[in-house]
């Protein structure tokens, strides 16, 4: 089944007096359970595409379907609900709410979803264990290292069992070792929980994890290949 389907997406930004093309007629289908890397130089449109898929941004034209639901016409509130229930996000940095502890950050999404407290506690501890941070439940983001913060973000992304996780340069601020640990975690989650991953990156090492590599330039997809040599 198709997880995300984009048809002829266009998006331009106004920066001062210059018009910048973010997306130019992008059409792409991503199936359930895929592990996709979006690559390309900065400004190529990776993040714009990711934001459009996640319903953070609305394209100027084109259609986006997530789990067979059109999302390009939703209101802000409906978009928020869609993100809440179907999509997990991992960003480059500032992933966590500073005033909440690691566990509370993970519970945040469930809290907004209205999950009862006991269930939240059990699940949040479960995922913390899964990402290897059992001991850090009560720490504030400022007391965690960059890699730990990203793992908390991943834990939060998977806790409500989304079908899709969108990660925008998740390893950009991490050292090589931590970065590969994070990627291993992604691959494992993809395999065990059948979560679809779309990761944007311009890091060559990350791309080696991909089973499908989409290259972008100037808002267009310039290549889309399935890789069998991926580290899996």
């Amino acid at each position: 089944m198709t997880a995300i389907s984009c048809k002829a997406l266009c998006r331009t930004f106004q920066q001062g007096e210059v018009k910048i093309t973010g997306l130019d007629q992008v059409t792409i289908d991503i199936d359930d359970g895929e592990f996709v890397c979006l690559s390309g130089p900065s400004g190529s449109g990776k993040t714009t595409l990711l934001n459009a898929m996640g319903g953070l941004d609305t394209p100027d034209s084109g259609q986006i379907t997530v789990n067979s639901q059109r999302i390009d016409h939703l209101s802000k509130g409906e978009m928020a609900d869609m993100r809440l229930h179907k999509i997990g996000f991992v960003f480059q940095a500032y992933n966590l709410i500073p005033v909440l502890t690691a566990q509370e950050n993970i519970e945040f999404v469930m809290q907004v979803q209205g999950v009862p407290a006991t269930k939240r506690h059990i699940k949040s501890l479960e995922v913390l264990k899964e990402v290897g941070l059992e001991g850090a439940a009560d720490r504030l983001p400022s007391q965690l290292s960059g890699g730990q913060q990203q793992r908390v973000a991943v834990a939060r992304a998977i806790v409500s069992k989304p079908t899709l996780i969108l990660a925008d340069e998740p390893t950009a601020n991490l050292d090589t070792k931590t970065a590969s640990q994070l990627m291993d975690l992604f691959v494992e989650l993809n395999r065990h929980h059948k979560i679809t991953f779309v990761i944007s990156t311009h890091d060559q090492r990350i791309m080696t994890y991909a089973r499908r590599l989409i290259k972008m330039q100037d808002g267009k997809i310039i290549s889309d290949e399935k890789l069998s040599s991926a580290i899996q």
Partner: peptide, 12 residues
């Protein structure tokens, strides 16, 4: 943080 909370699904 406001952006983050919205991205995570908190309504305006």
């Amino acid at each position: 943080e406001i952006g983050l909370m919205q991205a995570l699904g908190m309504r305006p």
